[in-house]
Design a protein around this nucleic acid. Structure first.
Length: 457
RNA sequence: GGUCGGGUGGCCGAGAGGCGAGGCAAGGGACUGCAAAUCCCUCUACACGGGUUCAAAUCCCGUCCCGACCUCCA
C-alpha cells in the first residue's frame, strides 16, 4: 500500500519489517466526548490498518489515551488554570481521573459503533509516568534537554538539526507574535523550546514526583515514549489529524529521534479536518456533532462511516445532515440488495477495489466501484454479493447485516391488523390514517399485490 | 505576514490534456385505491482574464474568492 507522507510530501510505499507494519495513532484527550471530526481521524487509522491487512501484512496498532491533560484550552473563562482535565473537573466537581475514565469508555463505545477495529493496545499517559521520566532523564543526559530557570525541563529545539521537516516551519519563523501574544513561561532559553516536564507550581491534582520535583509531563513526550516503548523504537506509520502536524508531531519527532538516534517514524500520515455545514467544528461555533447526535436523528451510525468513505482523507470535507441522510439511504439499499443476492459468505477478489484502496486510500473510488457493481447487469447476484463482502473487509459498513428486527409492540401489531382489515374493506381513509400512525411509530409501510408489509425505518 | 490546499450542475462531490463519474434533490413515466418502496427516462456545471497546445476542467501566468496550519485543537 502507498500513502501520502507529510514529511517527504509524496506518496510513498508503506514500510514493513518481516511482514509487520507498526502503526501509532494519536488518540483522544479524554476530557469530553469525541466529535465526528475526531472520529474521522480514528477511522483513518482503521482504514489504513484494514487495507494493509488485506494486502497480506500484519499490523500492530497503538493508540494512546491522553488522560493527563495539557495546556491552554477553551475553558479559559474560569481563570488561570489551563489544564483541560482539571478545568472540566472543577466545572463538574468531579475527580479528574473519574472524568478521564468516563470519556475513555465513551470513546471506545463510539469506535465500536463506527466499526473501528480496536487497536492492539491503548496506553494511558497516567500509567506511563516512570517511562516518561526516564526518557526525559535520557534527553537531558544526551544534551537534547535542559532544566530551565523555573525548574521545568525543556527540550532544546535547536539540538534537532532537521527541526521543521514535517511542518515546514523554520525555527526563525517561529518567533513569537505572529498570531498570539507571547505570554509563555519564562524558564526556557529559546522561544521554540518546549516543556518536557512542568513543575507543579500551585497545582495539587494530577501531579507526580520526579527528579525535578512534583509536576506533570508536557504534552508531546507521551507519544514519543509510548511509540518507542511499545513498537520496538520504530514506527512505520504515524497517523493523526492535520492540526497535530505542528507543533505536536514536529516536537514528537525531535524527541523520538533524539531518544532512538535514528529517524523513528517512516511515514507521517495526516487526516484533513472535517467541517460541519461549512465551518470547522468548535465549541464556539456551536456546531459540534457527536456520533450520538447522528443516532438520535434515527440514522445508522455507520452512515457517518459511509459519508466519510465518500471523501478522500486528505481533503477537507464538509459534512451535513443531508449527506448523512443520503448515506443512510444508500446503506439501507445496499443491505437490502445484499440479502436479495443470497446468503453465501464467499469473497470475490476485486482488483479495482484493491487498487483504489492501496493507492493512497482512495475510498471514494472504491465506493464508486461498488455502485457500478450494483448496477452491472452482466454480474450475477452471487458475484455481486461476494465482491461487496470483499470490499466490506475494509469499508466496514456491515453490508451483510440484516435490517434490525426489533420486536413489534402489541399495540403496533393491532394497528397493523386494523389496517389490513380496513384495506380488505376498501376503507381507504381509515387505512391512510392508520398508515400515518404507523409511520409516526417508526415503521415503513409498503402495500403490494399480496397485502401490506412493513419494516423499521 | 508565512506556509499549504481548494473553487466542477439546485446541493455534495470524482476526474487532472482529447468520451464532463457517481450520489442527493428536482421533473416525467411505470406500478399503486392513494401513497411508500422499486424500476425506467430527463435536465442543468468545470470562479474570472490571459497564455501554451491540433486539443485545456485538467498545464503555465495573473486576478478574485474560500478554507486550513503557524506553539489549545482530530
Amino acid at each position: 500500500m502507498s500513502i501520502y507522507d507529510t514529511m517527504s510530501r509524496s506518496v510513498k510505499e508503506v514500510t514493513e519489517n518481516e511482514g509487520l507494519v507498526t502503526m501509532y495513532c494519536c488518540g483522544p484527550t479524554v476530557y469530553r466526548d469525541a466529535h465526528v471530526g475526531n472520529l474521522r481521524t480514528f477511522l483513518l487509522a482503521d482504514l489504513i490498518a484494514r487495507t494493509i491487512v488485506l494486502t497480506g501484512l500484519e499490523v500492530e496498532l497503538i493508540q494512546n489515551i491522553t488522560d493527563v491533560g495539557h495546556m491552554a484550552d477553551d475553558f479559559q473563562e474560569d481563570g488561570a488554570e489551563g489544564d483541560k482535565m482539571l478545568a472540566e473537573s472543577k466545572r463538574t466537581n468531579t475527580d479528574p481521573f473519574e472524568i478521564a475514565r468516563r470519556y475513555e469508555d465513551r470513546f471506545h463505545q463510539d469506535l465500536a459503533r463506527l466499526n473501528v477495529i480496536p487497536a492492539d493496545f491503548y496506553p494511558k499517559a497516567s500509567e506511563n509516568m516512570p517511562e516518561m521520566i526516564a526518557a526525559i532523564e535520557e534527553l537531558i543526559a544526551n544534551k537534547s534537554a535542559y532544566v530551565g530557570s523555573d525548574g521545568s525541563v525543556y527540550f532544546d529545539a535547536a539540538s534537532c538539526a532537521s527541526y521543521g521537516a514535517i511542518s515546514g516551519n523554520k525555527l526563525d519563523s517561529l518567533k513569537p507574535g505572529h498570531r498570539y501574544e507571547y505570554t509563555d513561561e519564562g524558564g526556557k532559553k529559546f522561544h521554540a523550546d518546549w516543556a518536557l516536564w512542568k513543575v507543579a507550581g500551585s497545582r495539587t491534582q494530577m501531579i507526580w514526583d520526579s527528579p525535578w520535583g512534583p509536576g506533570f509531563p508536557g504534552w508531546h513526550i507521551e507519544c514519543s515514549v509510548m511509540s518507542i516503548n511499545l513498537l520496538q523504537a520504530h514506527v512505520n506509520l504515524h497517523v493523526g489529524g492535520i492540526d497535530l502536524r505542528f507543533p505536536h508531531h514536529e516536537n514528537e519527532r525531535a524527541q523520538s529521534n533524539a531518544l532512538t538516534a535514528q529517524e523513528t517514524v517512516d511515514t507521517w500520515v495526516h487526516g484533513e479536518h472535517l467541517l460541519f455545514e461549512g465551518r470547522k467544528m468548535s465549541k464556539s461555533a456551536g456546531n459540534v456533532v457527536l456520533l450520538q447526535d447522528v443516532i438520535d436523528r434515527g440514522l445508522d451510525p455507520l452512515s457517518l462511516r459511509f459519508s466519510l468513505l465518500e471523501n478522500r482523507y486528505r481533503s477537507q470535507m464538509d459534512l451535513s445532515w443531508a449527506s448523512l441522510e443520503a448515506a443512510h439511504t444508500t446503506l439501507r439499499r445496499w443491505r437490502t440488495a445484499m440479502a436479495q443476492w443470497g446468503s453465501a459468505d464467499d469473497l470475490k477478489f476485486d482488483q479495482e477495489i484493491i487498487d483504489a484502496l492501496t493507492n493512497d486510500l482512495d475510498t471514494p473510488r472504491a465506493m464508486q466501484r461498488l455502485r457500478a457493481i450494483e448496477k452491472d447487469s452482466s454480474l450475477g447476484a452471487l458475484d455481486k454479493r461476494a465482491i461487496f463482502l470483499f470490499a466490506d473487509q475494509v469499508l466496514g459498513l456491515d453490508l451483510a447485516r440484516a435490517e434490525i428486527q426489533k420486536p413489534l409492540p402489541p399495540e403496533i401489531e393491532s394497528l397493523l391488523t386494523l389496517r389490513a382489515e380496513a384495506r380488505a374493506n376498501k376503507d381507504w381513509s381509515a387505512s391512510d390514517s392508520l398508515r400515518v400512525q404507523l409511520e409516526d411509530a417508526g415503521l415503513e409501510i409498503k402495500d403490494g399485490p399480496t397485502g401490506q408489509s412493513w419494516s423499521w425505518r
